[in-house]
Write a protein that binds this DNA or RNA. Structure first.
Lengths: 196, 196
DNA sequence: ACCTGAACACCGTTCAAGT
DNA sequence: ACCTGAACACCGTTCAAGT
């Protein structure tokens, strides 16, 4: 990448991060280009679709979550690991308000720039779920797709201003429905959270 | 209302029902006016906001749900009543794809045309929940706002094409988390649904 | 190789002018 | 009273013209 292009690319990302933090994943692309002092075509050259831009914004968070899943997979009690990881992926999605709908759409659209990341997230969750199931700590009648949908729903609740105050409580309720011994949830999720 | 105005009003509603069925609650208002062979200003005169139009489209369904809640309140086993009613409100929201986000926003916005209906729905749910709780059939640590948020989340899952296949299963899972004796769910929700 | 911004086809919303 | 549609201020997306 040429030096001037690289500079535009980086600056666009910085501004996009600000604008998405402010207006959510549906933010005006025009507005981003304008505030970055860059032609609209330059934004489209670097990020041919909105999903491509969002994927770049979220990539670091996705990678961190993939690593966390691997850590959790060996280090923790399977139920603790599963619930803690769920909390973190919900927090990541929420940190980019509105992106969860794009992620839900991307999971079944191989052409979406978000597809690969979503598939990875789903697989990480499925692995943690399977481990908890094998230990008899999660209900057996669930699979990765169910977990992905529940995470999406919880992230969506977080994104709705009027429902957000109930989000933590409902996370606990749903986590409790996944686990065989929900009594243990309070022990390890009370103050957990992910920053992104 | 003048005869010509009444005719426009009715025709707009007919067309709006078609277009919303096709494109969801975010359908283009311009498109509705166009297909109704009516000036854009006429649509705005009859329905000053999108919420006003949606409220009119959904009113019959809301009224039916209010009646159903009253029936359920006296006729059925409290847990059966609660879960059956939840199924119906989820189905109503889903029958107007995308409207659930507006409903979530309206519940805390007294100026929204959907506000009153949402408050009524929330109150109906809260009453059925309280009755089930009093009978020891629903967990005591929940309130109406939690139920409303869960219904919204389930309706949202239904609206996402990629998540919809899991919607029934997740309804059961969440209903099971609300009830004290979830084993009973399968008995009475397997084939229930609402038409609107 | 990369950037720019006009051009196109859409929106939602308002309101002066008509009947 | 009611209707109309132009006008305004926005979008997303493309692409000819520039450097």
């Amino acid at each position: 990448m040429r030096a001037d292009a690289k500079k535009n690319y980086d600056h666009l990302l910085t501004i996009a991060r600000e604008v998405v933090a402010e207006h959510g994943a549906d933010a005006s692309l025009r507005d981003i280009a304008r505030r970055a002092d860059v032609g609209l075509g330059t934004l489209y050259r670097h990020f041919p679709t909105r999903e491509a831009l969002l994927e770049t914004l979220l990539r670091a968070g996705f990678d961190a979550l993939t690593l966390r899943a691997r850590e959790f997979d060996t280090a923790d009690a399977p139920d603790h690991a599963l619930v803690s990881w769920l909390r973190e992926i919900v927090a990541l999605a929420h940190s980019h308000r509105g992106v969860i709908a794009s992620m839900a759409a991307a999971i079944e659209d191989p052409d979406s720039a978000l597809h690969a990341s979503c598939v990875t997230m789903k697989a990480s969750g499925a692995r943690l779920l399977a481990r908890a199931q094998a230990a008899g700590l999660a209900r057996a009648d669930m699979e990765g797709a169910d977990l992905f949908a529940l995470v999406a729903a919880l992230a969506w609740i977080n994104d709705q201003a009027s429902l957000a105050p109930r989000a933590d409580r409902l996370f606990q309720l749903i986590a409790g429905a996944i686990l065989v011994h929900p009594g243990r949830i309070g022990d390890f999720t009370a103050h957990a959270s992910a920053e992104n």
